[in-house]
Design a protein around this nucleic acid. Structure first.
Lengths: 341, 341
DNA sequence: CGTTCCTCTCAAAGCGTTTTGACGATATGC
DNA sequence: GCATATCGTCAAAACGCTTTGAGAGGAACG
């Protein structure tokens, strides 16, 4: 069923039918009612491609996920997408996904722009000196960054980020106040900018107390359960093991927890742990109190928010960047520093 | 830069240019070379929407993810998508994602079909008596099912599944041979068909030995770490706790492991655990031996395979369904049944 | 009654491709 | 040398919608 056919059946012109269905004002209320009813009856839907061609808008938002060298897929990404995708659907947008090897990333953005496949893009996990921001500006595609790319205050793109520095500074201070002195940080890879910010917060808090963590106690790696387990096991075998560990995801936190238990120690007693918590649905840190003490910020909400910002941005509205604070949640993984033996 | 402009610059007709770029044979080799060079030079790319409209093919594959009532996002899904998406890109297809509340699911499929937005679909985690298979047939859209919907041998759609029944039967037998007699099964929700198959395998193996697990020891729930933890804690507090647990995902396995340790018991000694393992990149069950004994099947590979099958299906090739066997991997979570005290 | 102004509807011109069918020009066969 | 095939190119017609600009018909006004 095409617009033309529908118009013929109604003995109206395609123009009128199109206008009626798209809510333009210049059509008689009775006529519109007739058209809408008929459209529903025949199950008519405008052909997406024809509409896109005619309007020049693709009504699609692109997400480019680079498959990293280690072929690691960020589970956080799925949660973000769920949040974003819901908003897109409700606004009539489609979600276009491109999983490409990181080497083809720039090329993918270029293609997307040249073929006019998307009206806008979300840039995920910006890296330091990320080329994508400049690229997208050059290509003239609207975009929103999830995270912050650079620290320069002017000429920043629209972004949504959490206050990583403050979050980790706060968490570190919390542990310092519990009497901890030997710290370790299990962080994401530092080419991704949030990892740097977290480290700054961590170091800043320690610094203020004249403390510091040796380089071997600040590790950057992909945040898998196994990686976290391995590193923690190593730390716990050292003569003066850390008593306070900060980690960048609940997945790593599980690895830390496993290592602590395997070492015959108890979390919240011998070793305290604070994690960042993206509030992943399948990895919920629930309970009263929950198992882990965390700094929580829902990545799903972030997805929804970014989607809104981008849609507004595309619509030409002025949107301003946001920085969210994490919610500190006391769980069972923290406690006073153990007495020195 | 449009086709027409490019043609003008070359003093050729759009027809010839289009043919040259799309590799049709009826164009002179010299002319083609000239055209290709010019296209590259000007950075010309065909406008996707115009092409779609003209060809009637959308060159996009749809994935509809229902957001369940509990707002739970399947992390397995992300991994599947990564595998599939890579294939799509390499074949020139785009990936269209729709995250919709489960209530709108059928409607979403209908829309997708009526607007002709996609050339084909992947149906995820089919449920028992899944309406989607019939719906898609009615709509005439090619699709591939990841998992199996029904057991009727005839008139099955094209699908890719793993041998869930056999996998769990084998795992259960393995534990029986280790001397275990008190079993428990931590399963996914049974409206999803794989969960039923796994239970059948489990029960079949027990049955063959005259054993059975009480209903309270066969639990169906969303596979989160916390859920698994809670249920296992409850079991371990019972007078005759299970010594052998089977679970449907490594995420639940982590919950079980945490509960076992919190109960002061040791995995592989007091309690044995075999898990299904989707080989998620962020949840890798690595080590030598790995922490968990598992039945492994890469969901990422499954994604890639489904993508291939679907593309072939769309191309009109005959494709046949596949059932994959899991790979049994012995880890440290299993051991001989503890002696009765 | 003539003019002006709305209101509603329509014909037609895009949007940027692909694809059909035709047509000169050159090569091939007898 | 004439008919026939082959090659390379093109004009024009889709594809199914939106949007522009115009016009028919009535109502309102002087």
């Amino acid at each position: 069923m095409t617009l033309k056919e529908l118009a013929e059946r109604l003995e109206l012109s395609p123009t009128t039918v199109s206008r009626a269905l798209n809510g333009y004002p210049e059509v008689n209320a009775d006529t519109r009612a007739r058209i809408v009813t008929a459209a529903r009856e025949y199950g008519y839907r405008a052909n997406t491609m024809a509409r896109k061609l005619a309007t020049g808008r693709s009504m699609a938002i692109g997400h480019v996920i680079p498959l990293s060298a280690h072929q690691m897929i960020n589970p956080i990404f799925a949660e973000f997408m769920a949040g974003a995708s819901e908003i897109y659907s409700s606004e009539g947008y489609e979600t276009l996904l491109s999983a490409v090897p990181q080497a083809n990333e720039v090329q993918t953005y270029r293609e997307l722009a040249r073929r006019r496949s998307v009206d806008g893009l979300i840039v995920h996990t910006p890296r330091l000196d990320d080329p994508r921001v400049d690229l997208l500006r050059e290509l003239g595609l609207p975009f929103v960054v999830h995270g912050r790319s650079v620290d320069i205050d002017e000429d920043r793109p629209v972004y949504l980020d959490i206050n990583n520095r403050r979050s980790f500074e706060f968490a570190t201070n919390y542990l310092i106040e519990l009497g901890h002195r030997r710290f370790a940080l299990l962080n994401g890879i530092e080419t991704i900018s949030f990892a740097r910010r977290r480290r700054f917060g961590f170091e800043q808090a320690l610094d203020a107390q004249g403390l510091r963590a040796p380089a071997s106690r600040m590790v950057n790696m992909e945040m898998t359960e196994t990686n976290a387990y391995d590193v923690t096991c190593r730390w716990l075998r050292e003569p003066q093991p850390p008593t306070a560990i900060l980690t960048s995801s609940t997945i790593s936190a599980l690895g830390v927890a496993r290592a602590v238990r395997d070492a015959g120690l108890e979390l919240g007693v011998d070793v305290s742990l604070i994690s960042h918590d993206d509030d992943l649905s399948f990895m919920a840190n629930e309970g009263d109190p929950p198992p882990f003490t965390v700094q929580r910020s829902s990545v799903r909400d972030a997805g929804a928010k970014c989607a809104r910002m981008l849609i507004d941005h595309i619509a030409g509205k002025k949107v301003s960047s946001e920085i969210w604070d994490c919610e500190f949640i006391e769980g069972r993984s923290t406690g006073p520093a153990p007495k020195e033996t």
